[in-house]
Design a protein around this nucleic acid. Structure first.
Lengths: 115, 115
DNA sequence: TCAATAGTTCGATAATCTTGAACTACGGGA
DNA sequence: TCCCGTAGTTCAAGATTATCGAACTATTGA
Protein backbone atom coordinates (compact mmCIF):
# COMPACT_ATOMS: atom_id res chain seq x y z
CA UNK A 1 0.00 0.00 0.00
CA UNK A 2 1.29 3.33 -1.02
CA UNK A 3 1.53 5.21 2.25
CA UNK A 4 -1.81 6.94 2.82
CA UNK A 5 -2.07 10.68 2.45
CA UNK A 6 -0.91 12.77 5.39
CA UNK A 7 -3.27 15.55 6.34
CA UNK A 8 -2.34 17.82 9.20
CA UNK A 9 -5.07 18.32 11.82
CA UNK A 10 -6.59 21.78 11.80
CA UNK A 11 -4.64 22.83 14.88
CA UNK A 12 -1.37 22.11 13.10
CA UNK A 13 -2.04 24.25 10.06
CA UNK A 14 0.45 27.11 9.98
CA UNK A 15 -0.12 30.43 8.26
CA UNK A 16 3.38 30.41 6.79
CA UNK A 17 2.81 27.04 5.15
CA UNK A 18 -0.48 28.18 3.68
CA UNK A 19 1.12 31.30 2.25
CA UNK A 20 4.05 29.31 0.94
CA UNK A 21 1.72 26.88 -0.76
CA UNK A 22 -0.19 29.70 -2.41
CA UNK A 23 2.95 31.60 -3.41
CA UNK A 24 3.53 29.36 -6.42
CA UNK A 25 1.64 30.20 -9.63
CA UNK A 26 0.87 26.57 -10.36
CA UNK A 27 -0.45 25.82 -6.89
CA UNK A 28 -2.45 29.03 -6.80
CA UNK A 29 -4.02 28.01 -10.09
CA UNK A 30 -4.84 24.55 -8.73
CA UNK A 31 -6.61 26.06 -5.72
CA UNK A 32 -8.38 28.52 -7.98
CA UNK A 33 -9.70 25.69 -10.10
CA UNK A 34 -10.76 23.68 -7.09
CA UNK A 35 -12.71 26.56 -5.61
CA UNK A 36 -14.50 27.52 -8.79
CA UNK A 37 -15.49 23.90 -9.15
CA UNK A 38 -15.80 24.18 -12.89
CA UNK A 39 -13.89 20.97 -13.45
CA UNK A 40 -13.48 17.52 -11.93
CA UNK A 41 -11.24 17.45 -8.92
CA UNK A 42 -8.70 14.78 -9.68
CA UNK A 43 -5.04 15.75 -9.89
CA UNK A 44 -4.61 15.69 -13.65
CA UNK A 45 -7.51 17.99 -14.38
CA UNK A 46 -6.89 20.37 -11.51
CA UNK A 47 -3.26 20.96 -12.45
CA UNK A 48 -2.02 22.72 -15.60
CA UNK A 49 -1.84 19.96 -18.19
CA UNK A 50 1.57 20.79 -19.61
CA UNK A 51 3.33 19.90 -16.36
CA UNK A 52 5.00 16.51 -15.87
CA UNK A 53 3.10 14.19 -13.57
CA UNK A 54 5.91 14.13 -11.05
CA UNK A 55 5.81 17.89 -10.74
CA UNK A 56 2.05 17.88 -10.38
CA UNK A 57 2.31 15.29 -7.65
CA UNK A 58 4.90 17.37 -5.84
CA UNK A 59 2.64 20.43 -5.88
CA UNK A 60 -0.30 18.45 -4.55
CA UNK A 61 1.87 17.11 -1.77
CA UNK A 62 2.77 20.62 -0.71
CA UNK A 63 -0.85 21.74 -0.80
CA UNK A 64 -1.77 18.69 1.27
CA UNK A 65 0.94 19.18 3.86
CA UNK A 66 0.04 22.84 4.17
CA UNK A 67 -3.49 21.78 5.04
CA UNK A 68 -5.09 23.48 2.06
CA UNK A 69 -6.48 20.38 0.40
CA UNK A 70 -7.68 16.96 1.33
CA UNK A 71 -6.92 14.04 -0.96
CA UNK A 72 -8.74 10.76 -1.13
CA UNK A 73 -8.24 7.79 -3.36
CA UNK A 74 -11.35 7.06 -5.43
CA UNK A 75 -10.79 4.06 -7.63
CA UNK A 76 -7.81 4.73 -9.81
CA UNK A 77 -7.76 8.44 -9.29
CA UNK A 78 -7.23 10.83 -6.41
CA UNK A 79 -9.98 13.29 -5.62
CA UNK A 80 -8.97 16.58 -4.07
CA UNK A 81 -11.10 19.01 -2.11
CA UNK A 82 -10.32 22.26 -0.38
CA UNK A 83 -10.34 22.57 3.40
CA UNK A 84 -11.75 26.05 3.17
CA UNK A 85 -13.86 25.93 6.32
CA UNK A 86 -10.98 24.93 8.54
CA UNK A 87 -8.61 27.48 7.01
CA UNK A 88 -11.24 30.19 7.24
CA UNK A 89 -11.78 29.37 10.89
CA UNK A 90 -8.08 29.68 11.66
CA UNK A 91 -7.17 32.54 9.34
CA UNK A 92 -10.34 34.51 8.57
CA UNK A 93 -10.41 36.20 5.21
CA UNK A 94 -6.91 35.22 4.15
CA UNK A 95 -7.63 32.67 1.46
CA UNK A 96 -10.75 34.52 0.32
CA UNK A 97 -8.79 37.73 -0.26
CA UNK A 98 -6.01 35.86 -2.04
CA UNK A 99 -8.40 34.05 -4.34
CA UNK A 100 -10.17 37.27 -5.13
CA UNK A 101 -6.86 38.87 -6.04
CA UNK A 102 -5.60 35.90 -8.06
CA UNK A 103 -5.74 36.02 -11.80
CA UNK A 104 -6.14 32.88 -13.91
CA UNK A 105 -2.79 31.43 -14.88
CA UNK A 106 -1.78 31.96 -18.47
CA UNK A 107 -0.56 28.60 -19.69
CA UNK A 108 -0.62 26.16 -22.61
CA UNK A 109 -3.86 24.80 -21.19
CA UNK A 110 -5.71 27.55 -23.00
CA UNK A 111 -8.67 25.61 -24.32
CA UNK A 112 -11.48 26.89 -26.51
CA UNK A 113 -12.66 29.08 -23.66
CA UNK A 114 -10.62 31.97 -25.02
CA UNK A 115 -10.42 35.09 -22.87
CA UNK B 1 28.14 53.84 -4.49
CA UNK B 2 26.50 50.67 -3.39
CA UNK B 3 23.86 50.14 -6.04
CA UNK B 4 20.72 51.98 -4.96
CA UNK B 5 17.72 50.01 -3.79
CA UNK B 6 15.49 48.54 -6.46
CA UNK B 7 11.79 49.05 -5.87
CA UNK B 8 9.32 47.63 -8.37
CA UNK B 9 6.65 50.06 -9.58
CA UNK B 10 3.18 49.32 -8.28
CA UNK B 11 2.10 47.82 -11.59
CA UNK B 12 4.88 45.25 -11.40
CA UNK B 13 3.99 43.91 -7.97
CA UNK B 14 2.89 40.29 -8.28
CA UNK B 15 0.62 38.50 -5.84
CA UNK B 16 2.82 35.42 -5.85
CA UNK B 17 5.87 37.44 -4.84
CA UNK B 18 3.98 39.12 -2.03
CA UNK B 19 2.78 35.77 -0.71
CA UNK B 20 6.23 34.28 -1.07
CA UNK B 21 7.74 37.17 0.86
CA UNK B 22 5.22 36.75 3.67
CA UNK B 23 5.54 32.97 3.75
CA UNK B 24 8.75 33.14 5.78
CA UNK B 25 8.41 33.49 9.57
CA UNK B 26 11.25 35.99 9.77
CA UNK B 27 9.91 38.20 7.02
CA UNK B 28 6.38 37.99 8.35
CA UNK B 29 7.70 39.13 11.70
CA UNK B 30 9.56 42.02 10.10
CA UNK B 31 6.40 43.20 8.37
CA UNK B 32 4.47 42.74 11.57
CA UNK B 33 6.90 44.95 13.43
CA UNK B 34 6.88 47.55 10.71
CA UNK B 35 3.10 47.80 10.71
CA UNK B 36 2.67 48.02 14.46
CA UNK B 37 5.24 50.77 14.43
CA UNK B 38 6.29 50.03 17.98
CA UNK B 39 9.95 50.24 17.12
CA UNK B 40 12.31 52.19 14.88
CA UNK B 41 12.28 51.06 11.30
CA UNK B 42 15.89 50.37 10.47
CA UNK B 43 16.93 46.88 9.48
CA UNK B 44 18.57 45.76 12.70
CA UNK B 45 15.66 46.63 14.91
CA UNK B 46 12.98 45.40 12.54
CA UNK B 47 14.57 41.99 12.14
CA UNK B 48 14.93 39.33 14.84
CA UNK B 49 18.19 40.20 16.57
CA UNK B 50 19.66 36.71 16.70
CA UNK B 51 19.99 36.51 12.92
CA UNK B 52 23.29 37.17 11.15
CA UNK B 53 23.37 40.50 9.35
CA UNK B 54 23.79 38.85 5.99
CA UNK B 55 20.63 36.84 6.48
CA UNK B 56 18.74 39.91 7.60
CA UNK B 57 19.91 41.76 4.52
CA UNK B 58 18.76 38.90 2.32
CA UNK B 59 15.28 38.98 3.83
CA UNK B 60 14.99 42.73 3.36
CA UNK B 61 16.01 42.35 -0.25
CA UNK B 62 13.21 39.86 -0.84
CA UNK B 63 10.68 42.10 0.86
CA UNK B 64 11.89 45.00 -1.27
CA UNK B 65 11.79 43.11 -4.55
CA UNK B 66 8.32 41.83 -3.75
CA UNK B 67 7.19 45.43 -3.40
CA UNK B 68 6.22 45.10 0.24
CA UNK B 69 8.67 47.61 1.67
CA UNK B 70 10.50 50.70 0.59
CA UNK B 71 14.06 51.25 1.80
CA UNK B 72 15.92 54.52 2.00
CA UNK B 73 19.37 55.32 3.28
CA UNK B 74 19.26 57.78 6.19
CA UNK B 75 22.75 58.52 7.38
CA UNK B 76 24.43 55.30 8.33
CA UNK B 77 21.27 53.28 8.55
CA UNK B 78 18.52 52.14 6.21
CA UNK B 79 14.98 53.13 7.02
CA UNK B 80 12.23 50.80 5.88
CA UNK B 81 8.56 51.54 5.41
CA UNK B 82 5.66 49.44 4.20
CA UNK B 83 3.98 50.10 0.86
CA UNK B 84 0.62 49.18 2.31
CA UNK B 85 -1.47 51.60 0.26
CA UNK B 86 -0.14 50.33 -3.05
CA UNK B 87 -0.51 46.69 -2.07
CA UNK B 88 -3.99 47.28 -0.71
CA UNK B 89 -4.98 48.95 -3.97
CA UNK B 90 -3.79 45.99 -6.01
CA UNK B 91 -4.75 43.14 -3.68
CA UNK B 92 -7.52 44.40 -1.39
CA UNK B 93 -7.63 42.82 2.03
CA UNK B 94 -4.83 40.36 1.44
CA UNK B 95 -2.10 41.82 3.62
CA UNK B 96 -4.59 43.03 6.21
CA UNK B 97 -6.02 39.53 6.65
CA UNK B 98 -2.56 37.99 6.81
CA UNK B 99 -1.36 40.44 9.42
CA UNK B 100 -4.46 39.87 11.48
CA UNK B 101 -3.84 36.12 11.38
CA UNK B 102 -0.11 36.39 12.10
CA UNK B 103 1.16 35.60 15.55
CA UNK B 104 4.27 37.26 16.97
CA UNK B 105 7.35 35.20 16.26
CA UNK B 106 8.73 33.31 19.21
CA UNK B 107 12.44 33.97 19.18
CA UNK B 108 15.45 34.76 21.38
CA UNK B 109 14.45 38.40 21.09
CA UNK B 110 12.03 37.80 23.93
CA UNK B 111 12.54 40.92 26.00
CA UNK B 112 10.98 41.73 29.35
CA UNK B 113 7.55 41.83 27.70
CA UNK B 114 6.92 38.26 28.76
CA UNK B 115 3.86 36.52 27.39
C1' DT C 1 42.36 60.53 9.03
C1' DC C 2 40.87 56.78 12.06
C1' DA C 3 37.62 54.14 14.31
C1' DA C 4 32.85 52.58 14.88
C1' DT C 5 28.33 51.49 13.16
C1' DA C 6 24.90 49.75 9.68
C1' DG C 7 24.28 47.03 5.70
C1' DT C 8 25.73 44.79 1.49
C1' DT C 9 28.30 41.41 -1.23
C1' DC C 10 30.89 37.15 -1.74
C1' DG C 11 31.75 32.19 -1.26
C1' DA C 12 30.66 27.71 0.35
C1' DT C 13 27.43 24.39 2.22
C1' DA C 14 22.74 22.82 2.78
C1' DA C 15 18.06 22.45 1.55
C1' DT C 16 14.44 22.60 -2.00
C1' DC C 17 12.39 22.52 -6.89
C1' DT C 18 11.95 20.32 -11.49
C1' DT C 19 11.69 16.45 -14.29
C1' DG C 20 12.48 11.85 -16.58
C1' DA C 21 12.36 7.05 -15.39
C1' DA C 22 10.80 3.36 -12.73
C1' DC C 23 7.33 1.81 -9.67
C1' DT C 24 2.57 1.06 -7.23
C1' DA C 25 -2.48 0.87 -7.14
C1' DC C 26 -6.81 0.12 -9.14
C1' DG C 27 -10.27 -1.18 -12.75
C1' DG C 28 -11.63 -3.62 -16.96
C1' DG C 29 -11.65 -7.11 -20.11
C1' DA C 30 -10.46 -11.84 -22.15
C1' DT D 1 -6.92 -14.93 -12.78
C1' DC D 2 -3.71 -12.72 -15.69
C1' DC D 3 -2.66 -8.81 -18.55
C1' DC D 4 -3.06 -4.10 -19.83
C1' DG D 5 -4.13 0.87 -19.49
C1' DT D 6 -4.76 4.76 -16.50
C1' DA D 7 -3.65 7.76 -12.40
C1' DG D 8 -0.25 9.03 -9.17
C1' DT D 9 3.79 8.30 -6.36
C1' DT D 10 8.70 7.59 -5.53
C1' DC D 11 13.49 7.86 -6.85
C1' DA D 12 17.62 10.12 -8.61
C1' DA D 13 20.20 13.97 -10.71
C1' DG D 14 20.84 18.66 -12.04
C1' DA D 15 19.37 23.47 -11.29
C1' DT D 16 17.70 27.23 -7.77
C1' DT D 17 17.58 29.20 -3.61
C1' DA D 18 18.61 29.81 1.53
C1' DT D 19 21.88 30.35 5.40
C1' DC D 20 25.79 32.33 7.44
C1' DG D 21 30.78 33.64 8.24
C1' DA D 22 34.08 36.76 6.24
C1' DA D 23 35.34 40.67 3.67
C1' DC D 24 33.81 44.96 1.84
C1' DT D 25 31.29 49.73 1.41
C1' DA D 26 29.08 53.84 3.14
C1' DT D 27 28.38 57.27 6.60
C1' DT D 28 29.05 59.64 11.02
C1' DG D 29 31.75 61.39 14.71
C1' DA D 30 36.07 62.20 17.32
Amino acid sequence: MQRPFLHPPAEAIRLESVLYALADPVRLEIVRRLVTGDCPLNCSTAAPAHLPKSTQSHHFQILREAGLIQSERRGTEVVNSLRLDEIEAKFPGVVAAILKAAKPLKCPDAEKSGS
